[in-house]
């Protein structure tokens, strides 16, 4: 269980790099790609936390989060196309 700190650190670095792209831009699709990557990473993080706390119900939370994030990204993509 000590190794989990290493994985959490790697995930944190990845999220920070994605956050940099989100803040710097330069265009709206760039920021949205960063958001997409961050949500994917967060889903993995939630599953890891389920193991960390030893509760299986948290995996269902990750599943619901994945569904909602998918819907959100699709809505943003429709907005980019001008269809919203």
């Amino acid at each position: 269980m000590i190794g989990i700190n290493v994985y959490l650190a790697l995930i944190a670095i990845a999220t920070l790099l994605a956050m940099y792209r989100f803040l710097v831009g330069p265009t709206t699709p760039d920021r949205l790609v960063a958001v997409d990557i961050m949500t994917t990473i967060t889903t993995g993080l939630m599953v890891l936390f389920a193991l960390y706390y030893g509760r299986m119900i948290y995996i269902s939370v990750a599943l619901v989060y994945a569904v909602l994030a998918f819907g959100g990204v699709i809505a943003f993509a429709r907005y980019l196309e001008g269809g919203l």
């Binding site: 990845a14 999220t15 990473i41």
Partner: peptide, 11 residues
């Protein structure tokens, strides 16, 4: 997690 890092680096 290494591939996560790689994807952010690609970004």
């Amino acid at each position: 997690t290494f591939f996560y890092f790689l994807s952010a680096l690609g970004l």
